[in-house]
Each structure stands twice: as C-alpha cells, then as structure tokens.
C-alpha cells in the first residue's frame, strides 16, 4: 500500500535492493522452462549471513536458555514435541511412513562413521594405484576381446530328450563356474569389502559359559554385536549335535573392518611368536582368504589384554578370520592382502 504512493523510480530502486533476483532475471527474449522457477528461489543464502558476534557466542548457553524458557511451567512430555517413527511398517499406502534409515529419528538408524581409518587412506593413496600398476594388462588400441557367449556345453546327440534340456554342468568335480576376471581398470581395483570373525566352540554344548566368553571376546575385538549359530546336523566325528549352539560370528564392514585389519596387522600379528604367516593354500577362488588364530593368539588383542582377568583363561576361544575382497581370483586377493601387510607362506593356491 505504501509502495503504491511512492514515485515509480523510488519504488523500483527500493525493490531492486529487496529482491535482487527480480533484477537478475530480467525479462529477456530467451524463455526457458526454468524461468518460472527462478522467481520462486529466495534471493539470500544462509552462507551470506555473518556469524553471530563474539560476545553473543561467548555468553550463549543453550541449557540455561532452555531452563529459562520453561521456568515455572511444567515440561511437556517428550511425546509432545519429539517425533516418533511408526513402530510397524504398514505398507506403501499408509499415511504414516517411517523416515529413511539415515535419519537419526529412524528406529533403524545407526550412527557412524566416526573416523577416517588410516588403512583406508593408505589404500586410497598408495595400495590401490600400486595394485593397478601391478595387475594392469595392456591391449593395443583397436583390440577387441574374444567373444565368450556360452561357457557351458550343450547336449549334442540324436536323443529327443536333449532338446530344450538345461546346459551340461561344467567339467570336473565342481558344480559351479569359476568367476571371470574382467580386464583391470581403475574402476575394478580389488578392495576389502568385509571381514568376518568366526569362532567355533563345540564345548558350548555341555557348558554354555564357553559360548558367552566367545561372544564377549568376538564382540570386544570386532566392535560388532556377535551372532550365535546352531549346529545344523549331527556330526559324530566332531561331537556336534543338531540344534545346539556351537559358534559365534561377527561381520565387519567399512570402518570397523579397516580398524580391525589395521589392529591385526600392526599390533597382534607382530607379537605372535614364530608365526609363519597366512597359509598361501587359503582362498576360495572368489577373492576370500581365511586363516585361523589360536586361543593364545586371540588373547594378544589389546581389547582382550586390557581386562584379561575378566575371561576364564581356559575358555578363551580360537577363531577364524575371513577377509572378503572383491577380487575375482586368489592371486589378486593375495596381492591386495600382501600390500596391506599380511605375509603368506607355503604352497600357492591358484
């Protein structure tokens, strides 16, 4: 209303201060579909606002402020101002949808990451480029890889039963095909995807204390809640009875896996007396390497050492550690683990 009484020029000058965007997007001959949306964008950004003054930030006390605000009044129950996500998922069409898992108010939210592991930085800066150089295979420009259309054989013969029959299984004893190794590029340098600790304690069938101790130790060294497993079959030779709890595992990924491996390579393995290394016969041909630690080697972990007295010494279990990589053969997986600092010994499994 006041603007209408101002002279036209004054009003336009005033407006140009208030809404610089209106000036920025002056009507031009070019008309895009986004022109309409530009008018809706707010002209200022939170980064253009200067930070609060020195004295204000020094005297600011959020707890005192909140106490002052509700002085004399009773505090509302948390449910009045705190958002609770729905307890059950009631389908896509329900109006009350749970927030995404990355939202701290979600029931499934898990905090993290808490740090940038040193091993991961070393991998990014040193190990990955070196592995790429070591495993790179050069093809001249214009090279086209031979076409591999079908790796399995068909049934050939006169029999009418051969028609539309599934392909013949691979040759040899295995019932599955080995992984193919694609040509190495900077995109498929093998990396560590997961580390699994598995501890089997058959004594737990008689005395469950063994399982509790194993669970506490696996949890302490891996920073992950341990999962227990039952024996699936009766195995007389190993003294297993079906349905009895016999083992604990912990699966580590990302930050936890890197911290665990760094701890293993730099702290635990160097302190083992006369340790020969990881047997080079290990490896399943799909980039996973497994080796074992005996009970007295497990006791060398710093997390176990710090309260060694809390565990009954006879009950400390050994464990198997499986390092899962996304290499597609044993050779590449071994190269990666050697670069990380795990020595291998004995006959190679290729």
């Amino acid at each position: 209303m006041a603007l209408r009484e101002l002279p036209l020029r004054t009003a336009s000058a005033f407006c140009s201060h208030v809404r610089p965007v209106a000036q920025l997007v002056r009507p031009s001959f070019r008309r895009n579909s986004s022109s309409e949306a530009l008018y809706g964008i707010e002209p200022w950004s939170p980064f253009s606002v200067p930070p609060p003054s020195e004295e204000l930030s020094k005297t600011f006390d959020p707890v005192a402020r909140s106490k002052l605000r509700r002085r004399g009044k009773r505090e509302l129950p948390p449910s009045r101002y705190q958002y609770r996500p729905p307890k059950y998922y009631r389908g896509r069409l329900h109006p009350h949808q749970p927030p995404p898992v990355s939202d701290p108010s979600s029931r499934l939210f898990q905090p993290g990451p808490f740090s940038l592991p040193r091993l991961e930085q070393t991998y990014q800066s040193t190990i990955a480029p070196d592995v790429l150089t070591l495993t790179y295979q050069h093809y001249p420009p214009g090279y086209r890889a031979p076409k591999l259309d079908q790796r399995l054989r068909e049934w050939t013969g006169e029999s009418p039963y051969f028609r539309n029959r599934p392909l013949r299984p691979p040759r040899g004893r295995g019932d599955h095909l080995r992984l193919l190794t694609p040509p190495r590029t900077f995109r498929n340098v093998p990396k560590i995807t997961k580390v699994t600790i598995h501890s089997m304690v058959p004594e737990a069938q008689e005395n469950s204390a063994h399982l509790h101790v194993a669970g506490m130790i696996v949890q302490a060294i891996s920073n992950i809640r341990a999962t227990t497993h039952k024996a699936r079959h009766n195995v007389v030779g190993w003294g297993l009875r079906e349905g009895k709890y016999v083992s604990v595992t912990a699966n580590m990924e990302r930050e936890d896996a890197h911290h665990f491996l760094a701890k293993l390579v730099d702290v635990v393995l160097p302190r083992i007396k006369e340790w020969k290394g990881v047997p080079a016969s290990s490896g399943d041909g799909a980039g996973n390497m497994t080796f074992g630690l005996t009970p007295d080697q497990v006791a060398l972990f710093p997390e176990v050492e710090v309260n060694y007295d809390a565990y009954p010494p006879k009950m400390i279990p050994g464990c198997h550690i499986t390092i899962q990589t996304d290499a597609t053969n044993n050779k590449d997986a071994r190269l990666l683990l050697q670069a990380i600092g795990l020595p291998f010994f004995g006959k190679l499994n290729d």
Partner: peptide, 27 residues
C-alpha cells in the same frame, strides 16, 4: 615416496565425526 601419515581432516569432516560420536553416545 608415499604419504607417511593420515591427512588433515576438513573442518566439516571432523565436525561430522564428532556429531556422529555424540549421537552414538545417545543411542
């Protein structure tokens, strides 16, 4: 000669890590 120590974190990274640690304390 490869890097010998970890890199300095960006202030945003370190603020994020501290925030996540405090969230972890709550949860």
């Amino acid at each position: 000669r490869p890097p010998q120590i970890t890199r300095d974190l960006h202030p945003f990274e370190s603020a994020f890590f501290l925030y996540q640690r405090r969230l972890n304390e709550r949860l």
